[in-house]
Design a protein around this nucleic acid. Structure first.
Lengths: 223, 223
DNA sequence: TGGTAAGTGGACGCCATCGTCCACTTGAGC
DNA sequence: GCTCAAGTGGACGATGGCGTCCACTTACCA
Protein backbone atom coordinates (compact mmCIF):
# COMPACT_ATOMS: atom_id res chain seq x y z
CA UNK A 1 0.00 0.00 0.00
CA UNK A 2 2.80 2.37 0.78
CA UNK A 3 5.29 3.07 -1.94
CA UNK A 4 8.31 3.13 0.31
CA UNK A 5 9.99 -0.10 -0.75
CA UNK A 6 12.96 1.54 -2.35
CA UNK A 7 13.68 3.00 1.06
CA UNK A 8 13.50 -0.23 3.06
CA UNK A 9 12.52 0.55 6.61
CA UNK A 10 15.67 -0.23 8.51
CA UNK A 11 13.56 -0.77 11.61
CA UNK A 12 13.76 -3.90 13.64
CA UNK A 13 10.69 -6.10 13.39
CA UNK A 14 9.34 -5.18 16.81
CA UNK A 15 10.02 -1.53 16.22
CA UNK A 16 8.11 -1.61 12.95
CA UNK A 17 5.24 -3.33 14.73
CA UNK A 18 5.16 -0.61 17.37
CA UNK A 19 5.29 2.01 14.67
CA UNK A 20 2.15 0.61 13.09
CA UNK A 21 0.39 0.42 16.44
CA UNK A 22 1.26 4.06 17.06
CA UNK A 23 -0.14 5.11 13.72
CA UNK A 24 -3.33 3.20 14.27
CA UNK A 25 -3.76 4.56 17.78
CA UNK A 26 -3.04 8.10 16.64
CA UNK A 27 -5.53 7.87 13.81
CA UNK A 28 -8.23 6.80 16.20
CA UNK A 29 -7.24 9.34 18.83
CA UNK A 30 -7.22 12.18 16.28
CA UNK A 31 -10.62 11.21 14.96
CA UNK A 32 -12.20 11.06 18.40
CA UNK A 33 -10.43 13.83 20.22
CA UNK A 34 -8.93 16.05 17.53
CA UNK A 35 -5.28 16.60 16.73
CA UNK A 36 -4.67 18.33 20.04
CA UNK A 37 -4.92 15.05 21.92
CA UNK A 38 -1.95 14.64 24.30
CA UNK A 39 0.92 12.60 22.98
CA UNK A 40 0.86 10.47 26.13
CA UNK A 41 -2.69 9.42 25.35
CA UNK A 42 -1.69 8.22 21.91
CA UNK A 43 1.23 6.32 23.39
CA UNK A 44 -0.98 4.68 26.00
CA UNK A 45 -3.55 3.67 23.39
CA UNK A 46 -0.79 2.17 21.32
CA UNK A 47 0.56 0.34 24.32
CA UNK A 48 4.01 1.92 24.06
CA UNK A 49 5.95 4.42 26.12
CA UNK A 50 6.05 8.07 25.22
CA UNK A 51 9.73 7.74 24.40
CA UNK A 52 8.94 5.28 21.64
CA UNK A 53 6.37 7.65 20.22
CA UNK A 54 8.73 10.62 20.30
CA UNK A 55 11.60 8.61 18.80
CA UNK A 56 9.47 7.57 15.85
CA UNK A 57 7.73 10.92 15.41
CA UNK A 58 9.73 13.74 17.00
CA UNK A 59 6.96 16.25 16.39
CA UNK A 60 3.21 16.05 16.30
CA UNK A 61 3.27 17.35 12.75
CA UNK A 62 5.26 14.42 11.48
CA UNK A 63 2.77 12.06 13.01
CA UNK A 64 -0.11 13.93 11.43
CA UNK A 65 1.59 13.99 8.06
CA UNK A 66 2.21 10.24 8.15
CA UNK A 67 -1.34 9.48 9.13
CA UNK A 68 -2.98 11.54 6.44
CA UNK A 69 -0.57 10.65 3.65
CA UNK A 70 -3.23 8.58 1.89
CA UNK A 71 -5.86 11.28 2.10
CA UNK A 72 -3.46 13.84 0.68
CA UNK A 73 -2.76 11.50 -2.17
CA UNK A 74 -6.50 11.23 -2.76
CA UNK A 75 -6.70 14.99 -2.70
CA UNK A 76 -4.18 15.41 -5.48
CA UNK A 77 -5.84 12.58 -7.40
CA UNK A 78 -9.21 14.30 -7.17
CA UNK A 79 -7.78 17.41 -8.76
CA UNK A 80 -6.19 15.42 -11.57
CA UNK A 81 -9.40 13.53 -12.23
CA UNK A 82 -11.31 16.78 -12.32
CA UNK A 83 -8.93 18.28 -14.85
CA UNK A 84 -9.31 15.16 -16.98
CA UNK A 85 -13.09 15.26 -16.84
CA UNK A 86 -14.53 16.46 -20.16
CA UNK A 87 -17.41 18.12 -18.32
CA UNK A 88 -15.98 21.24 -16.60
CA UNK A 89 -18.84 21.63 -14.15
CA UNK A 90 -18.76 17.97 -13.11
CA UNK A 91 -15.02 18.23 -12.59
CA UNK A 92 -15.40 21.33 -10.48
CA UNK A 93 -18.06 19.68 -8.31
CA UNK A 94 -15.94 16.57 -8.03
CA UNK A 95 -13.01 18.40 -6.48
CA UNK A 96 -15.11 20.33 -4.00
CA UNK A 97 -17.08 17.28 -2.98
CA UNK A 98 -14.07 15.04 -2.70
CA UNK A 99 -11.86 17.35 -0.73
CA UNK A 100 -14.68 18.32 1.61
CA UNK A 101 -15.55 14.68 2.15
CA UNK A 102 -11.94 13.90 3.00
CA UNK A 103 -11.85 16.83 5.35
CA UNK A 104 -15.03 15.72 7.07
CA UNK A 105 -14.05 12.07 7.23
CA UNK A 106 -11.28 12.61 9.68
CA UNK A 107 -10.54 15.44 12.03
CA UNK A 108 -7.12 16.87 11.58
CA UNK A 109 -7.10 16.57 7.82
CA UNK A 110 -6.74 20.32 7.51
CA UNK A 111 -3.69 20.34 9.72
CA UNK A 112 -2.26 17.50 7.69
CA UNK A 113 -3.03 19.34 4.49
CA UNK A 114 -1.15 22.40 5.62
CA UNK A 115 1.71 20.47 7.11
CA UNK A 116 2.14 18.77 3.79
CA UNK A 117 2.12 22.11 1.97
CA UNK A 118 4.16 24.42 4.21
CA UNK A 119 5.34 27.73 2.84
CA UNK A 120 8.92 27.01 3.76
CA UNK A 121 9.87 23.73 2.13
CA UNK A 122 10.47 24.35 -1.55
CA UNK A 123 9.30 20.95 -2.71
CA UNK A 124 6.03 21.05 -0.82
CA UNK A 125 5.44 24.65 -1.64
CA UNK A 126 5.56 23.57 -5.24
CA UNK A 127 2.89 20.98 -4.56
CA UNK A 128 0.62 23.54 -2.97
CA UNK A 129 1.15 25.95 -5.80
CA UNK A 130 0.35 23.18 -8.24
CA UNK A 131 -2.85 22.55 -6.34
CA UNK A 132 -3.90 26.17 -6.36
CA UNK A 133 -2.95 26.60 -10.01
CA UNK A 134 -4.82 23.43 -10.95
CA UNK A 135 -7.92 24.58 -9.16
CA UNK A 136 -7.72 28.00 -10.75
CA UNK A 137 -7.56 26.35 -14.16
CA UNK A 138 -10.59 24.27 -13.27
CA UNK A 139 -12.47 27.39 -12.25
CA UNK A 140 -11.64 29.22 -15.45
CA UNK A 141 -12.68 26.27 -17.54
CA UNK A 142 -16.02 25.90 -15.75
CA UNK A 143 -16.69 29.61 -16.03
CA UNK A 144 -15.93 29.67 -19.76
CA UNK A 145 -18.36 26.79 -20.18
CA UNK A 146 -21.03 28.96 -18.60
CA UNK A 147 -21.66 26.53 -15.77
CA UNK A 148 -19.86 28.27 -12.91
CA UNK A 149 -20.91 31.79 -11.97
CA UNK A 150 -18.37 34.32 -13.19
CA UNK A 151 -17.97 36.04 -9.86
CA UNK A 152 -16.66 32.85 -8.25
CA UNK A 153 -13.06 33.42 -7.22
CA UNK A 154 -10.48 30.69 -6.59
CA UNK A 155 -9.95 32.06 -3.10
CA UNK A 156 -13.49 30.93 -2.35
CA UNK A 157 -12.05 27.44 -2.09
CA UNK A 158 -10.38 28.47 1.13
CA UNK A 159 -13.64 29.83 2.46
CA UNK A 160 -15.37 26.59 1.59
CA UNK A 161 -12.70 24.49 3.25
CA UNK A 162 -12.70 26.65 6.35
CA UNK A 163 -16.46 26.42 6.59
CA UNK A 164 -16.49 22.71 5.95
CA UNK A 165 -13.74 22.08 8.45
CA UNK A 166 -15.88 23.51 11.22
CA UNK A 167 -18.31 20.63 10.81
CA UNK A 168 -15.73 18.09 11.96
CA UNK A 169 -16.78 18.60 15.55
CA UNK A 170 -20.41 17.62 15.00
CA UNK A 171 -21.74 14.14 15.77
CA UNK A 172 -21.93 13.24 12.08
CA UNK A 173 -19.42 15.38 10.18
CA UNK A 174 -19.88 13.57 6.90
CA UNK A 175 -23.62 14.22 6.84
CA UNK A 176 -23.26 17.86 7.80
CA UNK A 177 -20.53 18.32 5.23
CA UNK A 178 -22.62 16.79 2.47
CA UNK A 179 -25.48 19.11 3.32
CA UNK A 180 -23.28 22.22 3.30
CA UNK A 181 -21.52 21.25 0.09
CA UNK A 182 -24.82 20.59 -1.64
CA UNK A 183 -25.99 24.06 -0.78
CA UNK A 184 -22.75 25.67 -1.83
CA UNK A 185 -22.54 23.87 -5.14
CA UNK A 186 -26.09 24.99 -5.89
CA UNK A 187 -25.02 28.55 -5.19
CA UNK A 188 -21.96 28.28 -7.41
CA UNK A 189 -23.99 27.54 -10.54
CA UNK A 190 -24.06 30.37 -13.02
CA UNK A 191 -27.84 30.67 -12.82
CA UNK A 192 -27.84 30.92 -9.02
CA UNK A 193 -26.30 34.38 -9.02
CA UNK A 194 -29.00 36.77 -7.82
CA UNK A 195 -27.44 39.52 -5.78
CA UNK A 196 -23.94 40.81 -6.49
CA UNK A 197 -21.35 39.13 -4.28
CA UNK A 198 -19.17 41.11 -1.92
CA UNK A 199 -15.53 41.24 -3.07
CA UNK A 200 -13.55 37.98 -2.87
CA UNK A 201 -11.45 37.37 0.20
CA UNK A 202 -8.18 36.65 -1.50
CA UNK A 203 -7.52 33.97 1.10
CA UNK A 204 -5.00 31.30 0.17
CA UNK A 205 -4.84 27.76 1.42
CA UNK A 206 -2.27 29.01 3.92
CA UNK A 207 -5.07 30.71 5.80
CA UNK A 208 -6.77 27.44 6.66
CA UNK A 209 -5.11 27.48 10.06
CA UNK A 210 -5.45 30.49 12.33
CA UNK A 211 -2.35 32.65 12.51
CA UNK A 212 -1.72 31.64 16.08
CA UNK A 213 -0.91 28.09 15.06
CA UNK A 214 1.98 29.10 12.90
CA UNK A 215 3.71 32.05 14.56
CA UNK A 216 2.57 32.71 18.07
CA UNK A 217 2.53 36.45 18.86
CA UNK A 218 4.34 37.44 22.01
CA UNK A 219 2.03 38.27 24.85
CA UNK A 220 4.22 41.03 26.17
CA UNK A 221 4.50 42.86 22.89
CA UNK A 222 0.81 43.65 22.91
CA UNK A 223 0.67 45.11 26.39
CA UNK B 1 -26.63 52.05 27.16
CA UNK B 2 -27.04 49.21 29.61
CA UNK B 3 -30.41 48.77 31.25
CA UNK B 4 -29.06 47.92 34.67
CA UNK B 5 -30.04 51.01 36.59
CA UNK B 6 -32.78 49.36 38.56
CA UNK B 7 -30.11 47.05 39.94
CA UNK B 8 -27.67 49.72 41.14
CA UNK B 9 -24.17 48.29 41.09
CA UNK B 10 -23.25 48.15 44.75
CA UNK B 11 -19.61 48.29 43.75
CA UNK B 12 -17.28 50.84 45.15
CA UNK B 13 -16.21 53.49 42.64
CA UNK B 14 -12.72 52.10 42.14
CA UNK B 15 -14.06 48.58 41.87
CA UNK B 16 -16.51 49.61 39.18
CA UNK B 17 -13.69 51.32 37.32
CA UNK B 18 -11.61 48.17 37.43
CA UNK B 19 -14.58 46.15 36.31
CA UNK B 20 -14.90 48.27 33.19
CA UNK B 21 -11.19 48.03 32.49
CA UNK B 22 -11.42 44.26 32.76
CA UNK B 23 -14.31 44.11 30.32
CA UNK B 24 -12.52 46.31 27.84
CA UNK B 25 -9.30 44.33 28.13
CA UNK B 26 -11.14 41.04 27.81
CA UNK B 27 -13.02 42.18 24.73
CA UNK B 28 -9.78 43.12 23.04
CA UNK B 29 -8.02 39.97 24.19
CA UNK B 30 -10.85 37.75 22.97
CA UNK B 31 -10.92 39.44 19.60
CA UNK B 32 -7.19 39.11 19.07
CA UNK B 33 -6.45 35.79 20.68
CA UNK B 34 -9.78 33.99 20.95
CA UNK B 35 -11.72 33.12 24.07
CA UNK B 36 -9.05 30.67 25.19
CA UNK B 37 -6.70 33.49 26.09
CA UNK B 38 -5.27 32.98 29.61
CA UNK B 39 -7.08 34.82 32.37
CA UNK B 40 -3.77 36.23 33.58
CA UNK B 41 -3.25 37.91 30.22
CA UNK B 42 -6.60 39.65 30.47
CA UNK B 43 -5.80 40.77 34.00
CA UNK B 44 -2.42 42.13 32.94
CA UNK B 45 -3.93 44.02 30.01
CA UNK B 46 -6.51 45.49 32.36
CA UNK B 47 -3.81 46.48 34.82
CA UNK B 48 -5.35 44.52 37.67
CA UNK B 49 -4.38 41.41 39.58
CA UNK B 50 -5.82 38.03 38.70
CA UNK B 51 -7.66 37.98 42.01
CA UNK B 52 -9.64 41.04 40.99
CA UNK B 53 -10.55 39.42 37.73
CA UNK B 54 -11.65 36.19 39.40
CA UNK B 55 -13.64 38.04 42.07
CA UNK B 56 -15.60 39.94 39.49
CA UNK B 57 -15.99 37.03 37.07
CA UNK B 58 -15.54 33.71 38.86
CA UNK B 59 -15.64 31.80 35.58
CA UNK B 60 -14.56 32.54 32.07
CA UNK B 61 -18.12 31.98 30.92
CA UNK B 62 -19.46 34.80 33.02
CA UNK B 63 -16.91 37.13 31.54
CA UNK B 64 -17.83 36.04 28.04
CA UNK B 65 -21.51 36.44 28.75
CA UNK B 66 -21.07 39.96 30.07
CA UNK B 67 -18.96 41.00 27.14
CA UNK B 68 -21.35 39.79 24.49
CA UNK B 69 -24.54 40.88 26.22
CA UNK B 70 -25.16 43.60 23.65
CA UNK B 71 -24.61 41.28 20.71
CA UNK B 72 -27.01 38.73 22.14
CA UNK B 73 -29.58 41.47 22.52
CA UNK B 74 -29.03 42.35 18.87
CA UNK B 75 -29.45 38.72 18.00
CA UNK B 76 -32.87 38.48 19.59
CA UNK B 77 -33.81 41.80 18.07
CA UNK B 78 -32.89 40.57 14.61
CA UNK B 79 -35.25 37.65 14.98
CA UNK B 80 -38.08 39.89 16.14
CA UNK B 81 -37.52 42.31 13.29
CA UNK B 82 -37.53 39.43 10.85
CA UNK B 83 -40.83 38.13 12.16
CA UNK B 84 -42.29 41.61 11.85
CA UNK B 85 -41.10 42.02 8.28
CA UNK B 86 -43.99 41.69 5.85
CA UNK B 87 -41.65 40.14 3.27
CA UNK B 88 -40.89 36.59 4.48
CA UNK B 89 -37.80 36.15 2.34
CA UNK B 90 -36.32 39.47 3.35
CA UNK B 91 -36.96 38.61 6.98
CA UNK B 92 -35.28 35.25 6.59
CA UNK B 93 -32.22 36.80 4.93
CA UNK B 94 -32.11 39.48 7.59
CA UNK B 95 -31.74 37.00 10.43
CA UNK B 96 -29.07 34.95 8.70
CA UNK B 97 -27.10 38.01 7.67
CA UNK B 98 -27.36 39.72 11.03
CA UNK B 99 -26.46 36.76 13.19
CA UNK B 100 -23.59 35.78 10.93
CA UNK B 101 -22.30 39.33 10.92
CA UNK B 102 -22.41 39.42 14.71
CA UNK B 103 -20.62 36.12 14.85
CA UNK B 104 -17.95 37.31 12.48
CA UNK B 105 -17.54 40.69 14.13
CA UNK B 106 -16.05 39.33 17.29
CA UNK B 107 -14.45 36.02 18.10
CA UNK B 108 -16.09 34.22 20.94
CA UNK B 109 -19.60 35.23 20.02
CA UNK B 110 -20.55 31.61 19.56
CA UNK B 111 -19.35 30.72 23.02
CA UNK B 112 -21.28 33.66 24.39
CA UNK B 113 -24.34 32.60 22.47
CA UNK B 114 -24.25 29.14 23.98
CA UNK B 115 -23.40 30.31 27.43
CA UNK B 116 -26.42 32.53 27.30
CA UNK B 117 -28.60 29.62 26.20
CA UNK B 118 -27.40 26.66 28.25
CA UNK B 119 -29.52 23.53 28.39
CA UNK B 120 -29.55 23.49 32.15
CA UNK B 121 -30.90 26.85 33.30
CA UNK B 122 -34.65 26.88 32.80
CA UNK B 123 -34.89 30.57 32.08
CA UNK B 124 -32.17 30.62 29.48
CA UNK B 125 -33.29 27.37 27.97
CA UNK B 126 -36.59 29.08 27.37
CA UNK B 127 -34.78 31.86 25.52
CA UNK B 128 -33.01 29.40 23.27
CA UNK B 129 -36.19 27.53 22.60
CA UNK B 130 -37.87 30.80 21.73
CA UNK B 131 -35.07 31.49 19.31
CA UNK B 132 -35.31 28.13 17.64
CA UNK B 133 -39.08 28.29 17.52
CA UNK B 134 -39.03 31.79 16.10
CA UNK B 135 -36.60 30.79 13.40
CA UNK B 136 -38.66 27.72 12.53
CA UNK B 137 -41.69 29.96 12.12
CA UNK B 138 -39.68 32.24 9.89
CA UNK B 139 -38.65 29.29 7.75
CA UNK B 140 -42.18 27.99 7.40
CA UNK B 141 -43.43 31.42 6.40
CA UNK B 142 -40.74 31.89 3.78
CA UNK B 143 -41.36 28.44 2.38
CA UNK B 144 -45.11 28.98 2.14
CA UNK B 145 -44.41 32.20 0.26
CA UNK B 146 -42.45 30.16 -2.27
CA UNK B 147 -39.23 32.08 -1.69
CA UNK B 148 -37.28 29.61 0.42
CA UNK B 149 -36.59 26.15 -0.98
CA UNK B 150 -38.84 23.58 0.62
CA UNK B 151 -36.03 21.21 1.54
CA UNK B 152 -34.43 23.81 3.79
CA UNK B 153 -34.56 22.55 7.35
CA UNK B 154 -34.31 24.72 10.49
CA UNK B 155 -31.33 22.66 11.63
CA UNK B 156 -29.47 24.10 8.66
CA UNK B 157 -29.13 27.24 10.75
CA UNK B 158 -26.70 25.40 12.97
CA UNK B 159 -24.71 24.27 9.96
CA UNK B 160 -24.58 27.84 8.71
CA UNK B 161 -23.47 29.19 12.07
CA UNK B 162 -20.83 26.51 12.45
CA UNK B 163 -19.50 27.22 9.00
CA UNK B 164 -19.58 30.95 9.50
CA UNK B 165 -17.90 30.70 12.87
CA UNK B 166 -14.86 29.10 11.29
CA UNK B 167 -14.14 32.32 9.42
CA UNK B 168 -13.43 34.21 12.64
CA UNK B 169 -9.81 33.17 12.49
CA UNK B 170 -9.14 34.75 9.09
CA UNK B 171 -7.55 38.18 8.67
CA UNK B 172 -10.85 39.76 7.72
CA UNK B 173 -13.68 37.68 9.22
CA UNK B 174 -16.39 40.13 8.26
CA UNK B 175 -15.47 40.06 4.58
CA UNK B 176 -15.19 36.27 4.47
CA UNK B 177 -18.48 35.91 6.31
CA UNK B 178 -20.27 38.24 3.92
CA UNK B 179 -18.99 36.23 0.99
CA UNK B 180 -20.07 32.91 2.48
CA UNK B 181 -23.47 34.20 3.52
CA UNK B 182 -24.09 35.63 0.06
CA UNK B 183 -23.43 32.26 -1.48
CA UNK B 184 -25.58 30.43 1.04
CA UNK B 185 -28.51 32.79 0.71
CA UNK B 186 -28.38 32.34 -3.06
CA UNK B 187 -28.54 28.60 -2.54
CA UNK B 188 -31.48 28.85 -0.16
CA UNK B 189 -33.75 30.44 -2.74
CA UNK B 190 -36.48 28.18 -3.98
CA UNK B 191 -35.26 28.40 -7.57
CA UNK B 192 -31.69 27.43 -6.63
CA UNK B 193 -32.63 23.83 -5.84
CA UNK B 194 -31.06 21.68 -8.53
CA UNK B 195 -29.95 18.41 -7.04
CA UNK B 196 -31.81 16.80 -4.15
CA UNK B 197 -30.21 17.64 -0.81
CA UNK B 198 -28.87 14.95 1.49
CA UNK B 199 -31.03 14.54 4.62
CA UNK B 200 -30.94 17.38 7.15
CA UNK B 201 -28.54 17.07 10.03
CA UNK B 202 -30.99 17.65 12.84
CA UNK B 203 -28.33 19.65 14.64
CA UNK B 204 -29.56 22.05 17.28
CA UNK B 205 -27.92 25.23 18.42
CA UNK B 206 -26.47 23.20 21.25
CA UNK B 207 -24.12 21.59 18.76
CA UNK B 208 -22.36 24.85 18.00
CA UNK B 209 -19.62 23.93 20.43
CA UNK B 210 -17.77 20.63 20.14
CA UNK B 211 -18.80 18.06 22.72
CA UNK B 212 -15.44 18.28 24.43
CA UNK B 213 -16.14 21.82 25.60
CA UNK B 214 -19.15 20.81 27.61
CA UNK B 215 -18.43 17.37 29.13
CA UNK B 216 -14.86 16.25 28.87
CA UNK B 217 -14.61 12.48 28.35
CA UNK B 218 -12.29 10.67 30.71
CA UNK B 219 -9.05 9.63 29.13
CA UNK B 220 -8.82 6.39 31.04
CA UNK B 221 -12.29 5.21 30.12
CA UNK B 222 -11.33 4.98 26.48
CA UNK B 223 -8.22 2.90 26.97
C1' DT C 1 -10.51 62.84 60.28
C1' DG C 2 -10.67 58.20 61.59
C1' DG C 3 -12.83 53.43 61.52
C1' DT C 4 -13.98 49.75 58.71
C1' DA C 5 -15.51 46.87 55.27
C1' DA C 6 -14.79 46.48 50.58
C1' DG C 7 -11.28 45.99 47.39
C1' DT C 8 -6.62 44.72 45.74
C1' DG C 9 -2.41 42.23 43.88
C1' DG C 10 0.62 38.75 43.50
C1' DA C 11 2.60 34.70 45.55
C1' DC C 12 1.54 30.08 45.84
C1' DG C 13 0.07 25.20 45.35
C1' DC C 14 -2.07 22.27 41.97
C1' DC C 15 -2.29 19.97 37.78
C1' DA C 16 -1.57 18.66 32.92
C1' DT C 17 1.43 18.35 29.07
C1' DC C 18 5.82 18.36 27.02
C1' DG C 19 10.01 16.20 25.58
C1' DT C 20 14.43 14.11 27.45
C1' DC C 21 17.29 10.87 29.68
C1' DC C 22 18.86 6.55 31.14
C1' DA C 23 18.89 1.97 32.93
C1' DC C 24 16.90 -2.12 31.25
C1' DT C 25 15.24 -5.50 27.44
C1' DT C 26 15.24 -7.88 23.08
C1' DG C 27 15.78 -9.15 18.22
C1' DA C 28 19.11 -10.44 14.62
C1' DG C 29 23.31 -12.15 13.03
C1' DC C 30 27.24 -15.13 13.89
C1' DG D 1 23.48 -19.78 22.62
C1' DC D 2 25.96 -15.22 22.76
C1' DT D 3 26.69 -10.57 21.86
C1' DC D 4 25.46 -5.99 21.30
C1' DA D 5 23.32 -2.39 19.00
C1' DA D 6 18.72 -1.19 18.43
C1' DG D 7 14.76 -0.57 20.91
C1' DT D 8 11.95 0.30 25.08
C1' DG D 9 9.28 2.45 29.02
C1' DG D 10 8.57 5.38 32.53
C1' DA D 11 10.56 8.67 35.69
C1' DC D 12 11.59 13.37 35.68
C1' DG D 13 12.36 18.48 35.32
C1' DA D 14 10.44 22.31 32.79
C1' DT D 15 6.71 25.02 31.45
C1' DG D 16 2.41 27.33 31.79
C1' DG D 17 -2.38 27.99 33.05
C1' DC D 18 -5.69 27.80 36.89
C1' DG D 19 -7.89 29.49 40.93
C1' DT D 20 -7.16 30.54 46.05
C1' DC D 21 -5.49 32.81 49.98
C1' DC D 22 -3.96 36.50 52.70
C1' DA D 23 -1.63 40.58 54.11
C1' DC D 24 -2.01 45.18 52.55
C1' DT D 25 -4.62 49.42 50.70
C1' DT D 26 -8.39 52.57 49.99
C1' DA D 27 -13.03 54.55 49.31
C1' DC D 28 -16.92 55.74 51.83
C1' DC D 29 -19.50 57.39 55.70
C1' DA D 30 -20.15 59.32 60.21
Amino acid sequence: MREIDAKPSRLRADAERNRQRIIEAAREAFTWHGVEVPMATIARKAGVGVATLYRRFPTRDELIREIFADQLQACSAALDEALDDPDPWRGFCHVIEKVCALQAAERGFTEAFLNAFPDAAADHSRRRLEGERGFAALVRRAQRAGALRTDFHPSDLTVVLLANNALSATPDPAAASRRLVSYLLDSFRADAAHTPLPPPTGLGLGHLLPAGHRARPTQGSIE
